[in-house]
Design a binder for these strands. Structure first.
Lengths: 114, 114
DNA sequence: TGGTTAATTAACTAGTTGGTTAAATACTGA
DNA sequence: TCAGTATTTAACCAACTAGTTAATTAACCA
């Protein structure tokens, strides 16, 4: 049996699908019903429903109840966890930029000696 | 056949596993061989090898060749893409802008029923 | 050369994912 | 109460994932 996944893993897994990322982007505009969310996609409604369930399971979406509608809203908490996690690696992608900067500075100094 | 995944999806998918995230954390210290990477885990070497292949496929790890060793190195490029993607959502976990948006949208729905 | 170490590939398995269609549920509104 | 709309559940399927053990490849060293 598989180990149940921690919140951060669930968030990353939920974000690993472009359909789900597009759904989150749509929810940036505000609450939306399942049909509104489904509209841009060439997918059956049950497929959309499953994607929403994944997002909900990762805590990225919450849902209300309004008549027969189940309005979805963005919940950004897990995104903060993702941002915090990835932030610890910033120096590794900025480091190379720094080295590039140094390199360019060196070139510049050589080419425009004072 | 399934559509081949875009780079951002590949990065998120690779990060959606705590074993692989721990491997990246280890590689922060510098290059490491497969055996060194495998040491902390209660997993067979082929399992580790597969995880590394996933990380490599996502561009998060690159590998060299040194005698019979295949040293692995952290490549943070895709992490920058992840950081850039998630950054667009910062306002949703930092401020109350999202709640204001929803409030306004709710008002609007009530005032303009279908 | 042959033995040892490092790592990957092969073959297999169980469980998960992402999609489908058809049926069911839940609520609205006449 | 009944038709319509919104959404989920059920049942199914193919592909993928994450693990295993056993075999293989590649390089070192004595």
């Amino acid at each position: 049996m598989r180990e149940q996944s921690d919140p951060l893993s669930a968030a990353f897994a939920a974000l690993a699908d472009p359909t789900r990322r597009a759904m989150l982007a749509k929810l940036c505009e505000g609450e939306a019903t399942v049909n509104e969310i489904a509209a841009p996609f060439d997918l059956s409604l049950p497929a959309i429903s499953k994607h929403l369930k994944v997002l909900e399971g990762a805590g990225l979406v919450s849902r209300g109840r309004n008549a027969q509608y189940r309005p979805c809203r963005l919940e950004a908490g897990p995104l903060k966890e993702v941002a915090d996690w990835v932030e610890r690696y910033r120096r590794f992608w900025e480091g190379s930029l720094d080295r590039l900067d140094d390199y360019l500075k060196g070139i510049q100094q050589k080419e425009t000696p004072k």
